[in-house]
Amino acid sequence: MDHRPQAWGRPRDDVYGAYDASYLQTSGPKTATQSPVVTGTSVIAIKFRDGVVMAADNLASYGSLARFTDVKRLRPFLSTSVVGFGGDVSDMQFLDRHLTELAIDESYEHEHSENPAKSQLNAANLHKYLSKLMYRRRNDFDPLWNQILVAGFDSSSKPFLASVDLRGTTFTSPSLASGFGAMLAQPIMRRYAATEEDAARLSREEAVNVVKECMKVLFYRDARSLDRYSIAVVTKDGVELSEDEQLEKQSWAFAERIRGYGTQTV
């Protein structure tokens, strides 16, 4: 056995042959993240009359391997907003810690005010901040490899939903979906909320049902997804976050008709 520290955690040479250490890179320029490693898939969200619904499944994939099945990708911020993360999970954890710090600072800042909720950062402020953060990291050539959705309320107390990605690009729309969701879930959500006016007519129950339906479609067709998911509803009363939902009433009948994959001969 080779007990030298350099050999710790490496495959044994006598068993596996000489170890290829070239990737360990002892010289050359510093390289930041060039691709995500452990990833979360789509995040979807839709506005309704009195708020926003957001959902993301609880899976963290390592390539195509379903590596962690209990990862919470939605987090509340100051119990007035919700942030949903897709993309690299370690960068998500960094942002999560960063936002916790920001929320603590913000709470102390307005400790003495009569109505803290009024002067604390709202979802629009938070989204602006995150977009500046993401764009700065992109300019440092060290991007945070995430697609982020922010839901809550803006300064005029209207429901707010916007996204920012690893390049600092921002979007806003009555419904938003990241990753595969942009292809699979967004068309479904647009059937119910194509415009702000449509969204303002949706009830909370309808919005939750649309989101659950989209999560099901995503589980059917996205190979990096899971049937356990988190769903958050933001209203004026705060954030209701449920982190262990199970997809209900699945029907795999359609799978029988799919041809061209697997072992069938016809």
Binding site: E109, S113, L121, A124, N125, Y129
Partner: peptide
Amino acid sequence: RLTYGRSMPVRT
């Protein structure tokens, strides 16, 4: 204003 898109609270 630039980073948060709001006016700074006076107390801050």
